[in-house]
Design a protein around this nucleic acid. Structure first.
Lengths: 313, 313
DNA sequence: TAAATACATACCAAATTTGATATGACGGAT
DNA sequence: ATCCGTCATATCAAATTTGGTATGTATTTA
């Protein structure tokens, strides 16, 4: 991974940047770092030279971040939080604490299989510490490899080696284009993706599989991509936009089915597009050779059973 | 901020840890860092000594992360991504690029005011680059201070200094307890929070304001806290659990209103609790003295207008 | 006008880092 | 038994870092 100018940064520099932004004075920041004011001044100057940018404007009564300084301060803060959490993780793991089951799933799989399995597990073990991550496959698989998820229901991104994983029965996921119930196109008998270019859209940003699947559908239809788009990952925001505008939102079919199904009954409709928009299949993935906690193993077995109950599509 | 053992970490160590985990061999990791294998071996050994933990098990054919090593690898990766993004930010800002409007809002405010304002902005500037962060207040305010959000609709957490902000008209947010439409308690005329201890719950983890408000309501009623809880931040997961179990989910009243209102019409009900569960008021917050981009200023004005249209509560 | 406050620069010395080469230990493959 | 591949250790030297003290500059305050 190319870190650019950040490759030479030091944690002390991040701490200084963050402390100056917080206190507004380098003298106070120096105190926090337990160094003298001249040492802090030089450290800041060195940092600015390394980065090639002025981070703070100097004033008689202290310092104020520049625009770049604000951006850097925000990043520095995130980094420091991450470092603190790294220490905490380390401490907890050394103590033999921290036993949870963490399962990751793409949205459809979360709704269709993971939640039911968790509900079953909770029936017998109501106090089990279960965490559900609903994310894109790339994030899920990377986190699986990185040990953050115990197992995941996700697609296998192309640049990952399938041999590293145990894969369970495949599932195919499709995308439904949602609109509000009284949308101009809600009662259309059939629409082509190309007809939808000039509508408003609300969806995740680029690189989300759903977004790529939608972009791909436009390209395959040789149609222009939409440009009137609100970017958000929040389902809530999407629903709010859908019911108050003529926007279109692409959602996984399991999500769509949940929302407009009898149990929830949201007043949304699915556009009948000529060619279904299909996402690549997803799998229950585990890393070969990795041991799971007993609770994670039980949850995996329950998810597996849920997958096997439904017929293949 | 106390970084614990992480205070002495170096970026080269993070890169090494991440590269070893990725490649499985220290020789290949050394290649990636452009250092010799013995240098990498010593760097790893020094890192393990500093952290007081073994990160990798050595084998004749390479290395495998230990449990602690997996956790560290995941953190290291996050840190490296953050550093890369720091460099990218810096590069973009130096080039005069990167003009967006980023608004943060708690869930109710997002639904009630931000989405409508964005819809209006989009009507005249459909290609404006707008980002919406729906998070807890503490995250939003911290990110506001850190420059990540241009402005936010959030509560002011107690340990923040109100004088740093421009505050706009206050709003009070209440929590509604949601259940599926045919829940045993759905038609109750009145329930006490204490009656709900032994039901299943699905909600965010501790420290989320909604979770704290719910915990507080139980404590004020001198009732036991529920223990049968599924932890998730995903609204989708909550809805899925609600419609398939007898679980209760606390949601902001604006979210609740959106879901069960005429426009969405989800088959959920609100439990009529005797004492309303109230969250602290939230505000439109900006940092004093900070300049916003023109698009961010316009969005703020529109949000302000939305706030002023509704009557005070 | 003098004092106080805040940041900047110069210089110094000790400690640490950084990366190399040379070589050893260990386990697996042939 | 030998060779190969991978990781570990020892040693060295150059460069860099780290933090200090002393002092300077600029602005504000009393």
């Amino acid at each position: 991974m190319d870190l650019g100018v950040a490759r030479n940064l030091k944690i002390s520099q991040l701490r200084l940047i963050s402390a100056i932004a917080e206190h507004g004075q380098i003298r106070l920041a120096a105190d926090e770092l337990a160094i003298t004011q001249p040492a802090a001044s030089r450290l800041l100057a060195d940092t600015e030279q390394n980065l090639g940018a002025k981070l703070f404007e100097r004033h008689p009564k202290g310092m104020v971040p520049t625009l770049i300084g604000r951006a850097l301060t925000q990043r520095a803060h995130k980094l420091l939080v991450e470092l603190r959490d790294l220490s905490r993780d380390l401490h907890e793991l050394k103590s033999g604490e921290g036993g949870t089951a963490t399962v990751g799933a793409v949205t459809g799989a979360a709704v269709g299989f993971v939640i039911p399995a968790i509900n079953q597990l909770k029936a017998t073990s109501p106090k089990a510490d279960i965490h559900v991550n609903v994310e894109a496959s790339e994030v899920l698989v990377r986190d699986l490899i990185g040990g953050k998820n115990d197992f995941v229901l996700a697609r296998l991104p192309p640049d990952f080696n399938a041999n590293e994983f145990e894969l369970m029965p495949a599932r195919t996921e499709t995308v439904k284009l949602m609109v509000r119930e009284d949308h101009p196109l809600a009662r259309a008998t059939e629409v082509s993706i190309g007809d939808l270019t000039h509508y408003e859209w609300v969806m995740q940003t680029h690189r989300a599989p759903i977004r790529e699947a939608v972009d791909s559908a436009f390209l395959q239809a040789r149609a222009e991509l939409p440009t009137n788009i609100i970017n958000t990952t929040s389902l809530l925001a999407m629903i709010a936009v859908l019911v108050s505008t003529s926007a279109i939102a692409p959602l996984a079919s399991e999500v769509s089915d949940l929302l407009i199904g009898n149990r929830v009954g949201a007043k949304l409709s699915v556009l009948p597009v000529k060619r279904p928009i299909v996402l690549t299949p997803y799998y229950l993935l585990l890393v070969k050779g990795r041991q799971l906690s007993p609770i994670a193993n039980r949850l995996r077995a329950l998810v597996n059973a849920e997958l096997n109950r439904g017929s293949r599509r």
